[in-house]
């Protein structure tokens, strides 16, 4: 760094350090942030600027914290970045009042520093928001994957809503794990509540049935709507020898008979169930 640049830099840092009250007041006015937040930031900046090695880690830490808080409070990213950028305007007024060429030249250097910090704020804001979205997606996946026991040895997943590839995969893994945990040899995948499937989702359903078979269990798919049947045929997906039933009730009665349980009596009379296992 040439000597004049060094001098300019020292001058602006001096101005920054000596006009604390004036700067903070003006900065608060311009940014609309709380004086407390800005004071902490000012202190961290002062420490960083006064230190020999110019370590801004603390400043960045504070900014990241502030960005995260602002995401939760629902501020826009521009608002959040403006909070940092408005420091420039506040300091410019101080530099202008000083009037010296060193102060003005130093301001250009300082302004670049603030730009960096502003961009950092923007990045922290986006990262914080992305994390929230990812967390919510995961929570949603957890929520929407019930595997229920219908009978001893028979479990079912009633799928409701639009299936995307990720969700189908999660549900299917959970279903297969439940087969192991409960020792169930029969599973019903009910898609009555699913408005549409695409090729990928249909493939996942198929793969699950085949995987279950590899593990020694049988899957029945029930509740296929006419439109979905149409899609599957149009897409040319082979359902092969996979058992499909019109309704969950049909699928249950099929699974019961496969597992050796016999249902006797007509539909409207008392249902007597007898297990055939020795």
């Amino acid at each position: 760094m040439t000597v004049p640049a060094e001098a300019a830099r020292r001058r602006i840092v001096d101005l920054f350090l000596s006009s604390e009250e004036r700067l903070l007041q003006r900065w608060t006015q311009l940014s609309g942030a709380s004086p407390g937040e800005l004071r902490d930031l000012y202190q961290a900046l002062r420490t960083a600027l006064s230190s020999e090695d110019g370590d801004f880690a603390d400043v960045r830490g504070l900014l990241a914290e502030l960005s995260r808080a602002r995401v939760r409070q629902g501020h826009t990213p521009s608002d959040t970045a403006r909070l940092v950028f408005s420091l420039k305007e506040a300091l410019y007024e101080v530099a202008e009042a000083d009037g010296g060429p060193e102060a003005l030249r130093g301001f250009v250097w300082f302004s670049r520093l603030v730009d960096d910090l502003g961009l950092y704020t923007f990045e922290s804001y986006t990262a914080a928001r992305e994390k929230i979205i990812i967390d919510q997606t995961e929570q949603l996946l957890e929520l929407s994957t019930p595997v229920v026991k219908l009978w001893e040895g028979i479990v079912a997943v009633p799928l409701v809503g639009t299936l995307d590839s990720a969700r189908t995969q999660v549900v299917m893994e959970k279903l297969l794990q439940t087969l192991v945990d409960t020792g169930s040899e029969h599973a019903v995948i009910d898609i009555t509540g699913v408005p549409a499937v695409d090729t990928q989702v249909a493939q996942h359903l198929l793969k699950t049935v085949v995987a279950a078979r590899l593990m020694g269990a049988e899957c029945v798919i029930s509740g296929i709507r006419p439109q979905i049947a149409h899609t599957i045929v149009t897409l040319g997906i082979e359902f092969g020898d996979i058992v499909t039933k019109a309704s969950l009730a049909d699928a249950l009665s099929y699974a019961l008979s496969r597992s050796g349980v016999e249902i006797t009596g007509a539909a409207r009379t008392r249902v007597a169930v007898r297990a055939e296992r020795a």
């Binding site: 299917m172 893994e173 297969l176 087969l179 192991v180 020792g183 169930s184 040899e185 793969k207 699950t208 085949v210 995987a211 279950a212 078979r213 590899l214 593990m215 020694g216 269990a217």
Partner: peptide
């Protein structure tokens, strides 16, 4: 099981059981 399906291995002729 999921990996085997993806790999394209069907284990033809092999009987399987859960436990």
């Amino acid at each position: 099981a999921i990996t085997l399906v993806e790999l394209g291995l069907s284990l033809g002729g092999v009987r399987t059981a859960l436990n």
